[in-house]
Design a protein around this nucleic acid. Structure first.
Lengths: 205, 205, 205, 205
DNA sequence: GATGAATGAGATTTCATTCAT
DNA sequence: AATGAATGAAATCTCATTCAT
């Protein structure tokens, strides 16, 4: 009896995992297409084709386009949040290390996973007209900002960052520079590196 | 004969002027709608409605949607370029004044004509997938960047800006901060002011 | 000036008339299809095909299926209301004549324009789930009932109808008999005639 | 051997009973949904949801929607036929009692099981386009009509009903009045009672 | 018997564009 | 220049049904 029950439960779990994996597959395909053609050019049928499923099957996983898009938002937010996961900080010695790690982390993503930040930009633009998305992304921005303020504050306290640093303003600047990169049509990856170096110089004593 | 010709010519001119005025009216309405609903939500019929003309008539002025959008791009670029019109600089005494004037100018636009920068962001995003738009905006970015490098360079030369300023990097940073503002969901107008102040502090000796 | 204006106005009117004629053409085709296949089987594409227009053109005249259906409701109600147009009564001498004329009128429609009453039945069924339709048809029923009560009352007053006739109940019965005919699968046109004769006998002294 | 066979057989029977019970459950749910949203709004998935089974499972009980609907028709017909079950009449003394019992019976159903008659109306409408349904319901109408004619005839013979009653016509009228009730948007339950009283008065001496 | 997944076929609706006047 | 009418092409979504387990 026990083993049978356990087997069934395991089956259900496996099935749930497969289900979720397919959902992630769809979300990833959607992200790719948004990065490729922009939000405007996103066609649900193209997503289905890319995943290799019938377009009705896609509706089986995501009832509407809007719901799929929200899933993309949540997925990307989840990925980004892990970027400033507070648990990571614990392993790093000084706030300067933390800031450095964070900047490297983001610039690594911008350079090696360019789609992610392009999709983020598309989503941010969309959030200007769509409250549902705005709510989610606003919170993300708030959290990211708080994360930066925290690092900066501790850095100032222990004297590795400049004494009179405006925590709020500097945090905004870092975020804006990172978000602005994709809109800067004539900046190279090298330029990005230099920019982040510059930020470090201005912040670190 | 002459007078008749002249009269006709004058009529033709007037008609041409009216024609162009209406074109501008259409472009402006288009910009407003893009700012309101994003590129995705732009409908040619809505543009026509907003201008108060039949949607078939709109096609008389702009043969296709693509052509209309390019006209919007050119129009907005024209407006932006006037921002760093070299002729203005001449009236200003020092490069520091020039930089200050420029930053004030842009922040004025962001705050008081928010639609313009939102549309610019939409266009920049679109330029990532549309070569036609990319060509135009890339040139604009190049010009804007050159404009900033020029100011910074002269400022360094005359000693009002920091000696070892990385001209290229700093110019990029200024542009990225300004472009990134609309994507920063939790930054206020005041934050923008503080950011630009910070920029001045870092640049000016 | 005047003649020009007048001409234009005439053009506009003609165009309006053509527009409305086509709308009626569409409504009629819709009615035919509802009568043929029932509400369930109504396909907007079939309507377009029947009228001989592109299905997008149909949407030009009726923005949604729902709107088209409401137009059908209003159209059919308009036709029915004319059946008990109070102006007709004036020409008839006695209430008995009026009642007789009304019953003949309806039975004529049931027999010679069977689609109309079948569509009415479909609409009445639909009104049970759709408030918008219910509102319209409820009013029609109220008016029709009031029309019958009025005839019966006057007939009783002048002594051509039975003294103790229950006006309300009898009016309901007449309406229910007429509406119930299409649901009576084994009643012939002759049966309908006999039924209406029976009604007359019961009502008239 | 015998006992084993018997046991198996009993299992099979139980299973058959369970199977049939579930079928009835599905049919009932279908009826409810038809009454609620009309035929048009009937979705097989909703039926499954209402019963609490997977929609694929439902197909195990009824291979197609069409087959399910026919089962509903047969079920409702079965319920209605019991209304004029000849065996009941035997217990009643006079044809007048029989007619009275029948009218009470139907009005009871209309008032206390309104769904049943609404579904019947839906089915009757559908029978106009669907021969399969028409065949079944036509027979039901024939039987019902014959049942009424029989009562009326016996009533006339024994002198409790009016001598010159047109048996065929009167039977049709009774059926049409009962069927027409649901299409009469402004008639109350009280009105129905009055109508049936009126019928009795006209028929009974 | 039961179910999650998948699908084909189709329905409504949208939209830029063109036609005829 | 202007417009009402018309349209092709496509997009999203729905639904009964089937497949595989």
């Amino acid at each position: 009896m026990f083993s049978r029950f356990s087997a069934q439960s395991s089956d259900a779990n496996e099935s749930k995992i497969l289900h979720d994996e397919r959902k992630v597959e769809i979300i990833t395909a959607t992200q790719d297409l948004i990065a490729e053609k922009g939000f405007e050019g996103l066609r649900i049928r193209d997503v289905a084709d890319k995943v290799g499923i019938n377009n009705a099957t896609l509706h089986y996983y995501f009832k509407t386009k809007e719901i799929l898009i929200e899933a993309v938002v949540n997925h990307i937010v989840h990925e980004l949040v892990s970027t400033y996961d507070p648990r990571r900080s614990k392993e790093l010695v000084t706030p300067a290390d933390e800031l450095d790690a964070h900047l490297r982390d983001i610039s690594y993503q911008i350079i090696h996973m360019p789609k992610r930040f392009i999709v983020l930009s598309e989503l941010l633009m969309r959030s200007l007209h769509e409250p549902a998305i705005h709510t989610i992304l606003k919170k993300t921005d708030d959290d990211w900002h708080a994360f930066l303020v925290d690092i900066l504050q501790r850095g100032v306290q222990v004297g590795v960052f400049h004494k009179y640093l405006d925590l709020n303003t500097t945090s905004h600047m870092i975020m804006m520079l990172l978000k602005g990169y994709d809109l800067q049509l004539n900046a190279s990856f090298e330029d990005l590196d230099h920019i982040l170096d510059q930020v470090r110089q201005w912040v670190i004593t």
